[in-house]
Design a binder for these strands. Structure first.
Lengths: 149, 149
DNA sequence: TTGTATTAGTTGCATAAACAACCGTATGAG
DNA sequence: CTCATACGGTTGTTTATGCAACTAATACAA
């Protein structure tokens, strides 16, 4: 069955995902330099709220590929830093809707500018075509692994 | 300078690296099912020791893209689980050389089998050519970000 | 209507990461 | 030789993840 033997080093690189670790580290550093007071993980939650405010924690789980405890605690920290606020859903009292505070909304422009700049640094010298191809491969990997749960 | 505007969702996917997170989660699950008693992070250290035993912690930092405290604590846990042993270097007393225990050595075959199988699951249906291309893109991303430190 | 299953969210515990500050050892210039 | 500097490793603190167990609220079937 192992018709797919990997060349030396390939296995390790794919599994450890050093490229995405490097991007996250750089984004964190760039946030700090730009005075954006949030972690990359917190940014990933804010990112989805900027697109559509007032999502439930469960929706944020699905959007960010995290489990429920992770989102609970990210929201805890975002709330502590006064960037979002939990509001109980009136129709279904199990649900927390997460809303941006004015400070949370204010952060969007600069944070997204830094995120785009960081991705430009990361992808410098890579053609559009190859970016698309890598994207397709990574999406396929993700789909392969999701499907088998 | 933002000649490289990203399509919707692309920025988020690249930065959060969901594919490599998914691979790591699957590998952890497969380890568990196969009775391999180690975390993916611990495996990443063992992987390099299986290739060459008796490396220093600093060498393991370089090999695994981790900082010194991270490796210190991974080695702490590996030592606690009796998979490796710290041995002081005789020539330079600052250095710890990390050696596999018999149990650590015994784990290699099964762990590498599971790792290869996991990568096969992840890359099912992706052509050799596209795997290579994705690899090149990810390496370029890594190099871009390393260079600018 | 009652009782069971499902859903949303939280808490506890172990592991890991980043960053800064620190200690002991080695090195090399003067 | 001595002292500043660099190097290898450890510790403390904060943040985040995964898993399992749990609570509260809802849905739904009998």
């Amino acid at each position: 069955m192992s018709n797919n033997q990997f060349r030396k080093g390939e296995l390790y690189s794919f599994i450890t995902g050093k490229a995405s670790v490097a991007i996250a580290r750089r984004l964190q550093k760039n946030f700090k330099e730009a005075g954006v007071e949030a972690t990359v993980e917190q940014w990933s939650i804010l990112y989805h709220l900027w697109k559509e405010d007032g999502r439930s924690q469960q929706q944020l789980c699905d959007a960010t590929f995290r489990d429920k405890p992770s989102v609970t605690r990210l929201v805890d920290n975002l709330e502590k830093n006064k960037l979002v606020k939990r509001v109980g859903d009136k129709k279904d009292r199990r649900i927390n809707l997460i809303y941006l505070t004015p400070e949370g909304r204010r952060m969007e422009e600069e944070a997204m500018r830094v995120a785009n700049q960081t991705l430009n640094e990361a992808l410098a010298g890579v053609s559009e075509k190859n970016i698309d191809l890598a994207k397709v491969v990574l999406q396929k990997v993700y789909d392969n692994l999701q499907g088998m749960l």
